[in-house]
Write a protein that binds this DNA or RNA. Sequence first.
DNA 1: GTGCAAAAGTAGACTTAGTGCAATATAGCA
DNA 2: TGCTATATTGCACTAAGTCTACTTTTGCAC
Lengths: 209, 209
Amino acid sequence: MDEPTGLRERKKQRTREAISNAAIALFFEHGFDQVSISRIAQVAEVSRRTLFAYFPAKEDLVLHRIADHETESARIVRDHPGAPLAALRAHFMDGLDRRDPITGLCDVPAAVALYRLIMGTPSLAAGMLRYRGSSEVALAEALRERAPELTARLAAAQIMAVQWRLAEDNQQLIADGTSADDAYPAAVDAARQGFELLSKGLESILGTD
Amino acid sequence: MDEPTGLRERKKQRTREAISNAAIALFFEHGFDQVSISRIAQVAEVSRRTLFAYFPAKEDLVLHRIADHETESARIVRDHPGAPLAALRAHFMDGLDRRDPITGLCDVPAAVALYRLIMGTPSLAAGMLRYRGSSEVALAEALRERAPELTARLAAAQIMAVQWRLAEDNQQLIADGTSADDAYPAAVDAARQGFELLSKGLESILGTD
DNA sequence: GTGCAAAAGTAGACTTAGTGCAATATAGCA
DNA sequence: TGCTATATTGCACTAAGTCTACTTTTGCAC
């Protein structure tokens, strides 16, 4: 599954990474808007036109790095026969333990810089939101096998909303300089409360009627 | 509060609307990407440069029409002394009754066309998501006076997620040709269930542990 | 190895969004 | 009537992204 054709594919992969690496490095140094496509192509030793063959838009040079986890929650639900909410909760908690970037609790410099880059660049932040939308759709799809259509869509919306809120809060803390280890206890508490709200509802806190 | 200075302000307002109207009409007819800024400026009888003085980006020509309700949920919470969730629920239900566009249950042709335009244009849809993010922030702010910081943020995320899911589902139905009156009963049921899930939680449906 | 078809890469012109600047026109007011 | 602030304009400029035609490279058959 690694070399369907061989040399040609491997070379394409290397070119793709060369372009991406050059782009990210330049973005880190000068900022997204201060680096032109031409400059990236020049550093990656590729023509401008070739760059666009690999990445259809400038934003993709950054966002392709995250666009691989969008079906993660859906996969968790599908892979676990038991209660979906419990499985998602356990997976998130495990992610915090492993300092998985997807939980926001990762202070590896490259990840922090990437987060800062994205959040500090409106067009990249917008791409992030689109990606969040895809995650919700995928999760709803997975939940459809466990609950009625409407419930699945509503639940998916709520669940992804909470997971993103938790991850964003963690990332913000880390971006502000807190180490992952220092942030860990509070992150676990927050996650506990987030999933508690999901399962038990908001009634006891915000009332209902 | 209507004429702080007078003529000058009124004229600006008229120019702004002339530009916006020209833009929307052209977009409806040819599609967002098929209409250039120059063409819009020409139809609105304004210079290209002036157009950009009123709308900093092409997307704003469309999105400014929706960008006024982003603090609506927050306002509802602030204006009601009682249980926030009940107030939001009542407001949404009332919105369905009134066929308020914000609930998605509005089949006025112009509103339907606007929805189709936005959803069919990636950059506009992205703007919509940003707007949704602002709503969440505003709601969290309002809830902060009724609940602890973290709870407020998590609850706001869940609530806006559900409201948007409901509104989007309604809009989709209308965009597919269903009349608002025909869609109403199902929309009410969906809203009932959405707010039920918010207040009671997902435990009974998706389990927890 | 040689040659050939397909895929990858290149060059350069073109369209359009958005900005900077300097010049002009106009509303509000003395 | 003239002064000032603000609105408007024209023009040149940068940069993203597309189009087309051309050249190089790769995989493969012989």
